[in-house]
């Protein structure tokens, strides 16, 4: 009985996503920040500069008001 071993050479194309972790982190930050600004800010962002007055002025809330309603975010 003769056993023949064949040397098999094959090429496999490994298709990687090629996405760096840095890109994912950067885009995740953009996602979270943008979503908060448009969907949920009630003066929080400007309060970092203007203090409590920002919660009364609601500049970002008013600026994003129409999109909040139109995109389905809870408002009022």
């Amino acid at each position: 009985m003769v056993l023949t071993f064949m040397s098999e050479s094959r090429q496999i194309n490994v298709s990687k996503t090629g996405v760096s972790k840095l890109a994912i982190v950067a885009l995740a930050i953009v996602f979270a920040a943008g979503l908060f600004v448009v969907g949920f800010d009630q003066g929080h962002v400007f309060s970092l500069v203007y203090g409590e007055q920002a919660f009364a002025d609601l500049y970002i809330h008013e600026l994003t008001h129409d999109m909040r309603h139109a995109a389905g975010f809870p408002c009022h």
Binding site: V38, E62, D66, M67
Partner: peptide, 18 residues
């Protein structure tokens, strides 16, 4: 509020697009 519709669209689009 109305003028913010388009600006908020760009911000939300960039966010969800991310």
């Amino acid at each position: 509020q109305k003028s913010g519709q388009i600006l908020a669209g760009v911000i939300l689009g960039t966010s969800v697009g991310a």
